[in-house]
């Protein structure tokens, strides 16, 4: 795949803290996982790319405009049914009512929650809520899906289910850009790893190489600490 996003000298300062420090990056892989220690600036980088935050300096250069969607660590469910939560995202994109309804149901079926469509979303389990959140973005058929630690607060079974769904979305051609604390998950999903440390890009490496021969000391330390 060709480079779809070039990041040029991106920086974000809050107060006197450099959260993102002079980041330049070319993203070409279809599935990229951003790794790094806590507080390295992973989530912030994703938010800058998604447009939720505005950089203090630098720029994002898109090869072509991509429709994006984002899944957060903690799913935000509106106080309505699971189905209506999925419909809500579609409605905001201006789809007709019948289209919304049909696509939302399809999407819920994809994440295996068709049977819970009419249940109040807030009363679903954490894993089910995250799957509704995935259904909500899947229905939008984004060209780029950003996920910020989507399985961080889930039990192993739910994590696996979410991972399966991410893989399926990726299989439909959507670009994936995500962060995770789960190195096994990173290994299974990623083609390429971006390793970030203290707001700077330490290295950008194909996944197999990253886990066997990381190029930087920071990444080596990180892997040693995180791996059992």
């Amino acid at each position: 795949m060709n480079t779809w996003l070039t990041i040029e000298r991106l920086g974000l300062t809050e107060g006197s803290t450099r959260i993102i420090d002079d980041v330049s990056l070319s993203l070409a892989a279809q599935r990229t996982v951003v790794l790094g220690p806590n507080g390295a600036g992973k989530s912030t980088l994703l938010r800058l790319i998604h447009g939720l935050l505005h950089p203090s300096e630098g720029a994002l250069r898109w090869a072509q405009p991509l429709s994006q969607a984002m899944v957060f660590q903690r799913p935000i469910m509106l106080r309505t049914t699971a189905l209506a939560n999925v419909v809500y995202g579609l409605k905001l994109k201006g789809h007709a009512k019948e289209v919304c309804q049909r696509r939302a149901l399809d999407s819920l079926a994809h994440v295996g929650l068709e049977h819970l469509a009419q249940r109040p979303a807030r009363l679903l389990s954490g894993g089910e809520q995250q799957r509704v959140a995935l259904a909500r973005v899947w229905a939008l058929e984004p060209e780029l899906l950003i996920l910020d630690e989507p399985t961080a607060s889930l039990d192993p079974a739910s994590s696996r289910e979410v991972e399966r769904i991410i893989n399926e979305i990726a299989a439909s051609g959507t670009r994936i850009l995500m962060t995770t604390h789960n190195l096994g998950q990173a290994r299974r999903i990623a083609e390429e790893i971006v390793f970030i440390d203290r707001g700077r890009i330490a290295e950008q490496t194909p996944v197999a190489e990253f886990f066997t021969q990381p190029r930087t000391l920071a990444a080596q330390d990180f892997l040693q600490e995180e791996m059992p």
Partner: peptide, 27 residues
């Protein structure tokens, strides 16, 4: 403060977000 990122990510305008939150915060 809780919903902001999610609603903006889904592309809700501020007016739309206000309406959504009014309904969601009805209780």
């Amino acid at each position: 403060s809780e919903y902001r990122e999610q609603l903006r990510s889904l592309g809700a305008s501020r007016a739309r977000a206000a309406a959504t939150l009014l309904w969601d915060g009805r209780f």
